[in-house]
Simulated scan of single mutants.
Amino acid sequence: MSDVVLNRTSLRAAAFPAYPGIAIANVRLVDSQALCGEALDVLMAADVIGFDSESKPTFRQGEASTGPHLVQLATETRAYLFQVSRLPGIDELKAILESPRLLKVGFGLGNDRSALRSRLGIEIDKVLDLGEVLRGPGHRGTVGAKVAVAHFFAQTLQKSRKIGTSNWATARLSERQQLYAANDAHVALQIYRAWAASGSGALPE
């Protein structure tokens, strides 16, 4: 399949329709043992899942992050949001993330991996950072989800900075927070599927 040659300027300028994202009805807040069990069964039955995490932002110089406060994992049809402070235990989350069989895909995962290791003792296995693998020789830095969505789907991924920097440690996540977090994991999986099917390798500059 031939590459779709798009550069960053054309991606920013194009009037693409909005990326639809996952529906709130397909998002699960994992805050009970029953939902931990459901998430484990559903996610471990997949071959690949989308992955991301969120942390409450820090605003003072020298302030250390206490995150991650939320871990998002998604299949094609469902997203599970693990609120770290409300989990009855981390055994299920640890089993999923440390599985050597299950591929976890996402964007900009360096901080996610180190934070999970230092706070929860979770060593993520078999993970693919799409921001790295989609970076062509002409790109500076990693490729973001917005560029990848425009490239593969000719759509605009809408991300609210206000929601992205909101309080992810709160016990009651708003619907907008839930959708933002769920879509970070879900869109990564959709992009991975499109990239794998295209065989196009890195994105052109």
Rank of each mutant, 00 (worst) to 15 (best):
L130H: 11
G144E: 15
L120C: 14
E123Y: 15
A39Y: 12
V30E: 00
K162V: 08
A154K: 09
D52T: 02
N26C: 10
A34L: 08
G164Q: 13
P100N: 13
S53P: 09
R161K: 15
G110A: 05
V27T: 05
G164P: 00
G121S: 11
T58Y: 11
L40Q: 12
S65W: 00
A46R: 14
H139L: 02
T77W: 14
L93C: 02
L134A: 10
S160N: 01
C36L: 09
I122Y: 04
I124H: 03
H69M: 00
E38W: 04
V127P: 06
L70Q: 09
R60C: 02
E123D: 13
T75M: 10
A145N: 01
E76T: 02
R113F: 12
A25G: 01
K126V: 09
V30M: 02
R78F: 01
D41I: 07
S32N: 03
L103H: 14
L70E: 04
V27M: 07
V48T: 13
L97Y: 10
G141Y: 09
D47Q: 06
K159D: 00
K159E: 00
L109Y: 06
G131W: 14
A46V: 12
E54Q: 12
F107C: 08
V42F: 00
S99Y: 06
V149T: 06
V127G: 06
G131L: 03
L93V: 13
D125W: 14
K146N: 07
R101C: 08
H151E: 10
E123I: 15
E92G: 08
S99M: 12
R135Y: 04
N26F: 07
E63N: 00
R113A: 01
G141L: 10
V48M: 07
T142Y: 08
L70G: 06
A25V: 02
F51M: 13
S160Y: 00
G121E: 09
V84S: 08
A154R: 13
S85L: 02
D125L: 12
G89T: 14
S99G: 04
S99L: 09
L97F: 04
F51P: 07
G37A: 06
A23E: 05
K146H: 14
A148K: 03
E92L: 03
S85T: 06
F107H: 07
C36V: 05
S32T: 12
F51I: 12
T66Q: 00
R86M: 13
R140V: 10
S53H: 07
R101H: 09
L109A: 04
A45H: 06
K56H: 02
G37I: 04
G110F: 01
Q83N: 03
L87G: 07
H139C: 03
G121F: 15
G108W: 15
P88M: 09
M44D: 13
F82A: 05
E63R: 00
D91R: 14
A45W: 04
R140W: 11
S65N: 08
D91T: 15
D91V: 14
K159A: 02
S114M: 01
L109H: 05
A46T: 13
A74H: 12
K162P: 08
A45L: 01
I122T: 14
